[in-house]
Amino acid sequence: RYRTTFTSYQLEELERAFQKTHYPDVFTREELAMRLDLTEARVQVWFQNRRAKWRK
């Protein structure tokens, strides 16, 4: 599977959502995914990776 490349707008929005909550529920993820034209799975994985980065 190829690596997803996020646009700067998508990253800004994902980071903004991350500032609000590190653990968005499925509705929040679905809403973000639709708004950013991504799949909910991509959003979920982004948050997993972002939390890992945050913990370091």
Rank of each mutant, 00 (worst) to 15 (best):
T28S: 14
Q44Y: 15
F6E: 14
F47E: 00
R42S: 14
Y9C: 13
T7N: 10
P24V: 07
F6D: 06
D25T: 07
K53H: 15
T7A: 05
T39K: 07
A17R: 03
F47N: 00
R16A: 09
Y23L: 06
F27Q: 13
E40M: 15
A41P: 13
L11I: 03
Y23V: 05
M34S: 14
T5P: 08
M34C: 09
K53S: 15
P24T: 02
R35F: 05
R16I: 05
L32D: 01
Y9F: 15
F6P: 09
E31C: 11
Y9S: 06
W46E: 01
R3Y: 09
Q19P: 02
R35V: 09
F47S: 00
R35S: 08
D37I: 04
W54K: 10
K53F: 05
R50H: 05
R16T: 02
F47V: 01
W54E: 15
Y2F: 03
L11Q: 14
L38H: 02
T7E: 09
V43Y: 01
R55M: 10
V26K: 14
R51K: 03
T21Y: 14
K20T: 07
Y23C: 07
V26Y: 15
S8P: 13
N49A: 12
Q48V: 14
K53N: 08
T28K: 09
P24M: 04
T5D: 15
E40H: 08
Q19L: 13
D25L: 02
E31H: 11
Y9A: 12
Y23Q: 11
R51V: 07
R29K: 07
D25I: 03
Y23S: 10
V26C: 07
L38E: 05
R29W: 03
K56Q: 06
L32V: 05
T5A: 06
K56H: 02
T21L: 07
T21P: 02
T7L: 04
D25F: 05
V26Q: 09
K53A: 14
H22F: 06
R42D: 12
F18L: 00
E15M: 02
A33C: 15
T4H: 07
K53L: 11
F27R: 14
Q10R: 00
D25M: 05
W54Q: 15
N49V: 10
V43L: 10
V45C: 13
R16L: 06
H22E: 07
E40S: 12
V26H: 15
M34I: 09
T39A: 10
K53V: 15
L11E: 14
L36G: 01
E31Y: 09
L38F: 01
T39Q: 12
R50S: 06
D25N: 11
T28H: 11
R51D: 03
L14E: 00
V45K: 05
R35A: 05
E12Y: 03
Q10N: 02
L14P: 00
M34Q: 14
E15W: 01
T39H: 08
E30G: 11
K56F: 08
D25Q: 03
T7Y: 04
T4N: 15
L36P: 01
W46L: 00
S8Q: 12
A33Y: 03
A33G: 10
A33H: 01
T7V: 04
E30C: 11
S8L: 06
R29N: 04
Y9I: 09
A41R: 05
P24L: 05
R1G: 11
W46C: 00
L32F: 02
Q10M: 14
E15P: 02
T5C: 11
Y9E: 12
V26T: 10
D37C: 10
R51L: 12
Q44V: 12
Y2R: 06
H22W: 07
E13C: 13
Y9D: 06
R35M: 06
K56W: 01
R51M: 10
V26P: 11
A17Y: 11
E13I: 03
E30F: 07
R42W: 12
R51C: 07
T5Y: 13
W54D: 15
E30Q: 10
E13G: 07
V45W: 05
L11T: 14
E13A: 12
M34W: 07
L38C: 07
R1E: 12
L11W: 07
E31K: 11
A17Q: 11
L36D: 00
K20R: 09
Y2Q: 13
L11F: 05
N49F: 05
L36C: 09
S8D: 14
T5L: 07
E12S: 09
D25P: 12
L38S: 08
R1M: 10
Y23A: 12
E40P: 10
H22G: 12
A41L: 08
P24R: 01
A17G: 12
Q48E: 15
V43E: 00
V26D: 10
W46A: 00
R1N: 15
R50I: 01
V43S: 01
P24Y: 02
N49I: 03
K20C: 13
